[in-house]
Amino acid sequence: MTSKGTCHMPDILRTSDNKERRVGVEVEISGLSYEKLVALTARLLKGEAKETSRYVSSVQTPLGDFTIELDSDPIKELDLKDNRLPESIRELGGHAMDIIDAAAEKIVPLEIVSPPIPFTKLGAIETLCDELREAGALGSREAIVYAFGLQLNPELPDLKPTTLVNYFRAFAALYDWLKSRHQLDISRKFTNYIEPWDSEYIDLLLSDNYEPDQQQLMNDYLRTNPTRNRALDLLPLFSHLDDELLREHVEDSRIKSRPTLHYRLPDCDIDNPEWHFSSVWNDWIVLEQLVANAADLKELTGLYRDSRKLSFRNLTSSWTENCHRWLESKGYV
């Protein structure tokens, strides 16, 4: 199996304790049955599949354990013996379940969740996505009801507040550019899953003298963004840093503690022959490289801060286009 794309690597490839950085990947698709997706994933990744619960399977591979699941808790947890269900449905038994399953697989995404994978092993995800497309996997563009995403959970090189601020500033400046490249489907544009950060928070973040400690950094963000529904969701990271402080602002059982960012913006456009996992990943690497270059980061965030001011020039120009031209001039794209 071969892939058409190459996953680029950042300059900062190792953590502060000299371990290779890793990333978790989440891919949402349709077009394949749950059973077929499990079997294909196991074969393509040279793994062994084991069902762990209804509509949830673990695929044990040389890269670690992948999870394949239907992304709907009510369907996964459905019990036809539940007395809360109408008696007519309970009496249908397996026939009712078959109907429910068939309907669910038409409108609810199937999700592939990877273990943390070393950056240098991401070619396996590129190949997996390409092979699933060949097998008939569908993405967001297939129907208006679909709003499927591809999510990245990149491990940070370290957790110092100065490092986090640099990543946050880079993302704020690149948000419109990233959205123009990877958030194409109208179904996701009408959802609140991928909202930008609050404007007041961005103004604070971009201030030249903004040098918060960890507690202030978390409080400043959570005061205006107490939700998972952000294009770059920081709640898993903040849970890892100080879960007690996080819970003072937001209580959500879905938040999973991990020392990573949670990048939720991109569509999964897997049925498009021109789309590849590496395209999404390589644009994230632009952000990584920007963070690694302090002078360029300062220049771009300064330009972005100026673009947010009310002026005739800003009203008649596009930050997305200006950002792209700047990235081209600096050799990032």
Rank of each mutant, 00 (worst) to 15 (best):
G149W: 04
G149K: 08
G149F: 01
L150W: 02
L150V: 12
L150K: 04
L150M: 13
L150I: 15
Q151D: 08
L152H: 05
L152R: 00
N153P: 05
N153C: 09
P154I: 00
P154D: 02
P154A: 07
E155S: 06
E155K: 06
E155F: 01
E155R: 10
L156S: 04
L156K: 04
L156D: 00
L156E: 00
P157M: 05
P157S: 08
P157W: 07
P157T: 05
D158V: 09
D158E: 15
D158M: 09
D158C: 11
D158W: 00
L159Q: 11
K160I: 04
K160N: 12
P161Q: 08
P161T: 08
T162A: 15
T163P: 10
L164V: 05
L164M: 10
L164A: 03
L164D: 05
L164I: 13
L164E: 06
V165S: 02
N166M: 12
N166F: 05
N166H: 13
N166G: 10
N166Y: 01
Y167C: 08
F168V: 05
F168S: 07
F168R: 09
R169L: 02
R169P: 04
R169G: 05
R169S: 08
A170M: 02
A170N: 06
A170E: 00
A170P: 02
F171S: 07
A172F: 05
A172V: 01
A173P: 07
A173I: 03
A173W: 02
A173G: 01
L174I: 07
L174F: 08
L174Y: 03
Y175G: 06
Y175P: 01
Y175H: 15
Y175C: 07
D176I: 12
W177K: 10
L178Q: 13
L178G: 09
L178V: 08
K179E: 15
K179P: 03
K179W: 10
S180K: 11
S180W: 07
S180Q: 10
S180P: 02
S180D: 12
S180I: 08
R181F: 00
R181C: 06
H182T: 14
H182K: 11
H182S: 14
Q183K: 13
Q183R: 12
Q183A: 13
Q183I: 09
L184H: 09
L184C: 02
L184M: 13
L184P: 04
L184D: 05
D185F: 12
D185Y: 12
D185S: 14
D185K: 05
I186E: 12
S187Q: 10
S187H: 12
S187G: 15
R188W: 05
F190W: 15
F190A: 14
F190M: 15
T191H: 00
T191W: 03
T191K: 14
N192S: 14
N192R: 14
N192F: 12
Y193I: 10
Y193A: 11
Y193F: 14
I194L: 06
